[in-house]
């Protein structure tokens, strides 16, 4: 009898000690950064003993969950606007940067051979340019043998931050796109077929000759999709790679939008890749679970300091050092517990 009681007390102590020292942070949201967060979480667990349980349910879901306060942080590819953040008392900061490329499947044309411009892409997606040998495309690619085939336009059918970034880019380069379609996580596409998820789009582009579809660069690279180059704001055709994505981030004025909510599309700079975007984290400014909020901030602090290599391995772009410092300053000044004590 005595022994049993002792064992039970010992067992409980172990359980309590365990829960006190290791907190499993919970997060939910965007699918785009999911591979990165899981890599970071794995390394962080090994380094600190604290885990992260991240559910990639989509940006909309992430926003809903953090508003409902069921997770420690939400993740979204589409930055929330200033008044939306204030309304729910949320703080927002970027975690990493990614880019998108137009994947194509034109027979005989390899990756990086075809050159396109933003207005041409907008016209293709509006249905105004419907053949690959359109004079406008020919003029940019005099050396390519372009087929006289119809362009099959492919888009993401599920609501997605990827679609937001793509349609935002098209809105910036084409007034007609801006007024007729606009930018959102899902829009009313004038033409084309929809594939579900990155894999749906890439499968459709691969299966159907003469198609064009937008996918994340990491995805295009891993799946060896062929893709076209896009002219940037300075009139150059940079190659999509970490350097050109970083060039897009370097010139940006992060302080210009509340919650760092700027969009890196069509940034100036000779090397800047034109379709680039950050992915964001949302947390409550006044946390009623300060332990968990602190643990989440510690995780991102660790990722900022130690996660750059992991990010580049997965084709994500780490944030510039000065942006990280600005974010850390915001953690100190903005994220507090209910009594107003800073958590970081």
């Amino acid at each position: 009898m005595k022994f049993r009681e002792l064992a039970a007390v010992a067992g409980m102590t172990i359980v309590m000690m365990g829960s006190a020292s290791a907190i499993d942070i919970t997060g939910a949201g965007a699918t785009f950064p999911f591979p990165l967060y899981s890599k970071w979480a794995e390394a962080y667990k090994a380094a600190s003993g604290n885990g992260l349980n991240y559910q990639s349910i989509g940006s909309g879901g992430g926003i809903r969950q953090i508003k409902a306060n069921t997770v420690d942080f939400g993740a979204s590819d589409m930055p929330l606007k200033g008044d939306d953040l204030d309304k729910d008392g949320l703080a927002q900061f970027p975690s990493a940067i990614g880019a998108e490329v137009p994947a194509i499947s034109v027979p005989g044309i390899e990756a990086r051979q075809m050159k396109l411009t933003g207005p041409i892409l907008a016209d293709i997606y509006l249905g105004k340019i419907s053949k690959w040998d359109d004079p406008k495309i020919k003029a940019l690619n005099p050396d390519l043998k372009l087929p006289s085939a119809g362009i099959n336009v492919v888009y993401r059918s599920d609501g997605s931050g990827t679609t937001f970034v793509w349609t935002d880019y098209l809105s910036r380069v084409s007034d007609e796109w801006k007024s007729k379609v606009g930018a959102n996580t899902s829009v009313s596409w004038p033409i084309g077929v929809g594939g579900k998820g990155n894999e749906g789009v890439s499968a459709t582009v691969k299966q159907i000759p003469n198609s064009i579809g937008y996918v994340e660069y990491a995805y295009a690279k891993q799946n060896k999709l062929s893709y076209a180059l896009i002219q940037n704001k300075d009139g150059k055709f940079p190659v999509p790679e970490i350097e050109s994505f970083q060039a897009a981030a370097a010139n940006a004025d992060w302080k210009s939008a509340p919650g760092f909510g700027i969009i890196l599309n069509n940034q100036p700079g000779e090397k800047a890749w034109p379709v680039t975007s950050a992915t964001f984290i949302l947390m409550h400014k006044k946390s009623d679970k300060p332990d968990r909020a602190t643990a989440a901030l510690k995780f991102f602090d660790w990722a900022y300091s130690n996660g750059d290599k992991l990010a580049s391995d997965l084709e994500y772009v780490p944030l510039p050092a000065n942006v990280k410092d600005q974010v850390r300053a915001v953690w100190k000044s903005d994220i507090k517990d209910t009594s107003g004590k800073p958590l970081f």
Binding site: G58, S59, G60, G159, T185, K196
Partner: peptide
């Protein structure tokens, strides 16, 4: 519904 439910608000 399958396509849009995740991100709908």
């Amino acid at each position: 519904i399958a396509n849009e439910f995740n991100e709908a608000l």
